[in-house]
Structures are given as C-alpha cells and as structure tokens.
C-alpha cells in the first residue's frame, strides 16, 4: 500500500493506492484507468467515465482538465509531504518577501534600489508584457535587501526581481 498526499488549491487529501482498490480520505472507490495517450486518460469512477487531460508541470505537479475545469495539483508520497512541511515551517520563521515576475515580460522600470524603503501596496516596478504596462505592487512594508534585475532586462515568469526585508 502506498499513501499519497494530493493538494488541490488549499485542500490536502490522502489517497491510498493498493493492489485491489483506491481509498480517498478513508472512502473506498471503484476506479478504473485507461490511457489514451500521454496527455489523455479515461478514469471510471462508479458508473461515470471521465476524460482527463493532463500535463506534467514539474516533478510533483500535474495539471488536469476535466469537463472544462482546469486544476493544478501537487502530489507527494506521505513521507515526502512531511519533509516538505517541515522545511516550509523552518523557512517561514526566517522568511523574507521575495518579489517574483508574475508573468514573462520586459522590466521597463525599477523604482527602488537596495536600501530603499518600500510601503505595502506601493508600485515598485513596471513590467511590460503583451505591450501592456503592469505595475508590480509590493506585498510588504520594509527595506529593499537585494535587487536581482536591471531595467530593460527581460524576465521569465517567477524569476526573482528583488527581495524585501
């Protein structure tokens, strides 16, 4: 028997996969699986067959599209989940606010430099994406600890622009 912790949105659920059945949060399910191709599976749950479109996003993340509903899930073995939780907790204690690029684009303007004060809600940079100028708003009040990018640079999604302490 193998236990997996699946996170969908904020919700964490436990799935046990055994040789004979699948147990979801303690409830036994009648499940059958058929693979159409790498990105399309058929999953039978009771008397209903679902077409599930899937993409592997990273080692622990899959996205799914089911009857027009899109989901991103994180899935870990229960052991791995415990380890990650422990690490997160440790990190939270010494956490700095990290400003990441919310989308790929061109860093048009950086309004702050290292050592500057910043207020929560203040615009700290302008990112141009798809020809639109987007303000990047500070999620915290503090002091700029580190600036990782320069004006005029293009950034990928989730690249760190600067850090606030």
């Amino acid at each position: 028997m193998h236990d997996f912790i699946v996170t969908v949105g904020e919700e964490k659920r436990i799935v046990s996969v055994t040789n004979n059945h699948i147990v979801l949060d303690g409830k036994k399910l009648a499940v059958e699986l058929s693979k159409v191709n790498k990105h399309l599976y058929l999953l039978r749950l009771d008397n209903k067959v679902f077409e599930v479109t899937t993409t592997k996003l990273s080692n622990e993340k899959y996205s799914f599209l089911v009857t027009g509903n899109y989901f991103e899930t994180t899935v870990r073995t229960s052991l791995r989940e415990k380890a990650v939780e422990y690490l997160n907790q440790k990190q939270r204690l010494s956490r700095n606010d990290i400003i990441k690029a919310p989308m790929p684009g061109l860093l048009l303007k950086l309004k702050k430099k290292t050592g500057d004060k910043v207020e929560m809600g203040e615009s700290i940079a302008i990112l141009e994406a798809m020809k639109m100028e987007n303000d990047i708003i500070s999620p915290a009040t503090g002091i700029i600890k580190e600036v990782n990018k320069k004006e005029g640079m293009s950034v990928e999604k989730d690249e760190i622009i600067l850090k606030i302490e």
């Binding site: 193998h2 997996f4 699946v6 969908v8 919700e11 659920r13 799935v15 996969v17 699948i22 979801l24 399910l29 499940v31 699986l33 599976y41 999953l43 749950l45 209903k48 679902f50 599930v52 899937t54 592997k56 622990e60 899959y62 799914f64 089911v66 009857t67 509903n69 989901f71 899930t73 899935v75 870990r76 073995t77």
Partner: peptide
C-alpha cells in the same frame, strides 16, 4: 466534489506510475 475526486485520484495514480 466528484470532479475534485477524479483529479485527486488521477494525481495519485500518475505519481504512483511514475514512482
């Protein structure tokens, strides 16, 4: 809830297959 169940089970099965 049913669709949530489907997605949750799929994620676990894909991870099981991978591991």
């Amino acid at each position: 809830q049913e669709i949530n169940d489907v997605v949750t089970v799929m994620a676990a099965l894909l991870k099981a297959e991978e591991n």
